[in-house]
Amino acid sequence: MKKSIILLCGGTSVLLAAGTLMPGWLTFMLTLALAKGLVVLGLLLLMRAGLVSFGQGLYYCLGAYAVAVTGEYFHTQNALLLMAVAVVVCVALAAIIGLLLCRYRDIFFAMFSLAFSMILYGVLVKSSAFGSSDGFNVSPPQLFGWMPGEENTPLLAYCLAVVSVVAVATFIWNYFRSPMGYAGEAVRENEIRVEYLGVSVRRVIYTKYLLAAAMAGLGGAITALTAGHIDPEMAYWTTSGEFVFIALMGGTGHVAGPVIGSVLFELLRTFAFQLSPYTWQMILGIALLAIILYLPKGVWSLIERITKRISA
């Protein structure tokens, strides 16, 4: 246990220190990747229970808009406060929608979650108060009254993203080893037996849905603070599809899978767009097909194979 804590603190310190040495474009890209990794970590909770959500863009977008609206109308730029507001708003909405979604499984769960995400997209596109289809800008963040300069703003967002990912990943790691975590995997295998054991399947799924919404809102908040601009496209179905894409790419066998998959996805998309601006989606599609064919359990399964061979 002590060794794990030391390794975790050491790894976090290395990542934070690396932010001061990286070029601005790489810091920006990794921050966005880590923010999306938070969303996929929440999606991992649902996938471990046998559910696939195509509506995580709902909370990703809602978290970003909560940051922008709070900063604009309540005149605050405190990054931690804005992130907390985003999480609370997303959990509050998920507490209502989850009462309906926890009743459904398989394709019905996926399509219902997608429908709610597209409803938010339609509302934002038609709402002039929120910038309509153009969205609006987000004020630069500050931390405990400290306002970073223009050059240090990406570094602040990067540090917030690193700390958030480490904290959330540690929580999920322990959650999967708790009775509620094991109950999720049992639900995926046989719901009827779980009910016979006296555990409420709906309560298990409802809890996971709330946690996934909180993580998606946190990821959206960090994205808003990093990019400095938000728009309704964050709730569009293609955004939710990206999160599922990343989950398949990284794998669901370990909490590091979504983070690794998110970083690889951003790197792949960036260089694919640079090489072929008009057909970069085809490159992503080919990459996904290759992973499904040769690494059906995601990139993390390759890392597991390598570590096993080294240890052997």
Rank of each mutant, 00 (worst) to 15 (best):
I5A: 10
L7S: 12
T12K: 02
L16T: 04
P23R: 12
M29V: 13
T31R: 08
L34N: 09
L41N: 04
G42E: 05
L45P: 00
V52P: 01
G57F: 07
Y65E: 01
Y65H: 03
A66H: 05
A66G: 04
A68F: 06
V69H: 02
T76P: 02
A79V: 02
A84W: 00
V91A: 11
V91T: 10
L93Q: 05
L93W: 11
A94E: 03
I96R: 07
L100E: 10
C102I: 11
I107L: 15
F112T: 14
M118V: 15
G122N: 15
L124I: 14
K126I: 09
N137C: 08
Q142D: 13
F144W: 13
N152P: 04
T153I: 15
P154L: 07
L156V: 11
L156K: 04
L160V: 09
S164M: 08
V165M: 03
T170K: 01
F171T: 00
N174E: 00
Y182I: 04
A186W: 01
R202I: 11
L211Q: 05
G217P: 01
G219H: 06
G220P: 00
T223N: 12
A224T: 06
D231G: 14
P232H: 04
E233A: 14
W237D: 05
G241S: 11
A247I: 05
M249A: 13
H254D: 09
I260N: 00
S262N: 09
S262D: 07
L268D: 06
G285N: 08
G285Q: 10
Y294W: 15
V299C: 11
S301E: 14
R305I: 13
R309H: 11
S311Q: 15
